[in-house]
Design a binder for these strands. Structure first.
Lengths: 202, 202, 202, 202
DNA sequence: CATGAATGAGCATTCATTCAT
DNA sequence: GATGAATGAATGCTCATTCAT
């Protein structure tokens, strides 16, 4: 939480950077644009951040610690339908849409060594698994099962949800969907997942 | 098919651009780098392409027509296990890894109007559906069902596969997996999809 | 002599500036670097000095008054071998190596009007001459002789010594000399000076 | 020798850089100033030179090869008074005044690893020695004598001359000398060198 | 005395693009 | 078809300096 002028400015720079990076990509966003968006001098950014990458790293740190807190909160023991839990999850991640898009874009570049996006989802999956285990919903997991679980959650659980969140707007515009319809279709698809449905058809 | 020197150069520019865009992103790749990679003069690129966006558009056109051809080929009627079909699909898409990453990165930017990635997957899904219908595996589809089908295939079918392909290398490095193990885990997860497995656990 | 905190800080700034200017040149040294080196806030420098040039001017003033004091001290009447006197001179100037380098660099720029270095050596030469005259070693000097004397002392006396001091380290590294050998060679060369030796060879 | 437009531009950049570096120092000269002085676009400089240091390095290379050629020319066997030879030498070096000042300034910075100036004078001294030896003026030189000779020539021969050349203008302005008088005084001092004169006084 | 924060001009360098040859 | 040379705008970043606290 910002306490003085400097911290407030820093926060505003991060907010502007998050917006602009998600709109134009990291490389497509100039320090000039960020400064203009915040309404400060370009040089001032360098008072608060070492360089452009430092802004990126700060955004990453922020979302990571946010996710730590979030998972603690969301996974208290409660009797809740799985579907409702997923809806809440989607809600939470929707608020992180921008930063998730940024992290994904960066992680997709094969030429750098950033695995921001993978780290981020790893945190979510592991934290959630931890709390599930604590609640006694399942027994202990052996190492191989853990690996399988992470792969499974990542690619067939998280990826559908996060790509839905990231592409929702463009999808609606491209296919002339309204958002509500897409959401319902997606939920049906997700619950009633892929190959399972295939089997029913045959 | 390139016929003369000019076409060959054009092809080489596209190949270099595809490599570099996927490594550093579109904005992170300069015309200079492309020219150097091809081994030609920077100005020459402008003989073959109007501007940088034109290179991008050409890459998009190429993958789109490639997908048209591919789907015609892959979906001939044959008795094949679903799992094997998926493996072939993954194989095909793996060869397109670079361009898919590029298109995805661009589509993630909310500030431009490119929906390259969505268009691309739409083609794949629709072409495949067409051929499935022709083969008489299912009856006619009403409009709403078609929409649901596309959403379903896109987010819970294609997205897991494509994100697996795009993130495979970074995943293996980050988690110290070998490729084979990841592939097996992924296949198991994908076949045995998400919520279905959840049900089995309880 | 620094008396309170403020003066101490001022002294520390000068010390840091002297070090950094001699390492990277005046233009190559930023106020930031100086502040960081001193361990104070950049703004604080401006409490003690009007601007960057003021730091330079202060360094110059300091060395000038130091030289006044030094010459008074060194040139008391004593029976000392010329060679020993020169050695003492070299010793004294070695301690001023940094500031002499800085002043020389600045004076070499033809585009500004600084003649720091010339002034500095003028003081040394004149003070020494004064004391020599007082000691009655020579008679009165007419104006033209004074001019000749200064030219002579400056270019064939001071310049060899000072360039030896300024270039010593780089020379040793470049030619793989050890410092002692260079010093001996230099002393021999200096005592046994240039054209004289030429004559002996023939 | 420049053959086409590009080479001419390159040559003009070098000329402007030499002038500006000598006026304001390397760090004090911006690429902007150079471009403006040449009358070209700033970006164009980067077509011809990798970066600012590359310009510096090119200037250094140029003077070095110029010196190689010069010494070959100047040291043909001839019966010439030493004094006249020195005058010719001074004449030659006067034309190199700018670049010598630049190289000296850079070499004076202890923080970088450039020994441009030392290398430069080493070439002059060694080439001249070579030709002197060939002319049979002296016998063979053993290693230690060579070292002594270089030290001797460098500090008591070259340094007075080059500092005279570099400081001449400022000296005349500061002391209100006219150039001719300074030259005569310097020649007298140089011929009649330092300690020798001291001895005569006593 | 000293700091944190800011400013605007300037820095070296790179960019996409153009065009005569 | 391709090259060498150039351009002007923009890039990320640093500069000396200021000032309220």
């Amino acid at each position: 939480m910002p306490k003085n002028d400097g911290d407030i400015t820093k926060e505003r720079i991060l907010k502007a950077a998050e917006k602009l990076f998600s709109e134009e990509g990291f490389d497509g966003t100039s320090m000039d644009k960020i400064a203009k968006d915040v309404g400060i001098n370009k040089g001032s950014i360098y008072y608060h951040f070492k360089d452009k990458n430092d802004i990126m790293a700060s955004l990453f740190k922020k979302i990571l610690s946010d996710m730590y807190e979030h998972v603690d909160y969301i996974s208290r023991p409660m009797k809740e339908r799985l579907e409702d839990k997923i809806k809440r999850e989607i809600q939470y991640l929707s608020d992180k849409k921008r930063i998730l898009s940024i992290l994904f874009m960066e992680t997709l570049k094969s030429g750098n060594n950033t695995d921001y996006f993978i780290q981020c989802l790893e945190v979510m999956i592991k934290k959630e698994l931890d709390s599930t285990l604590k609640n006694g919903n399942v027994g202990e997991l052996i190492e191989e099962d853990l690996e399988k679980y992470i792969v499974y959650e990542f690619f067939t659980g998280m990826m559908p949800i996060i790509s839905f969140i990231m592409l929702k707007d463009k999808w609606c515009e491209y296919f002339k969907y309204d958002e509500k319809k897409l959401f319902e279709h997606f939920m049906e698809a997700f619950v009633n997942s892929h190959l399972k449905a295939h089997k029913f058809n045959k």
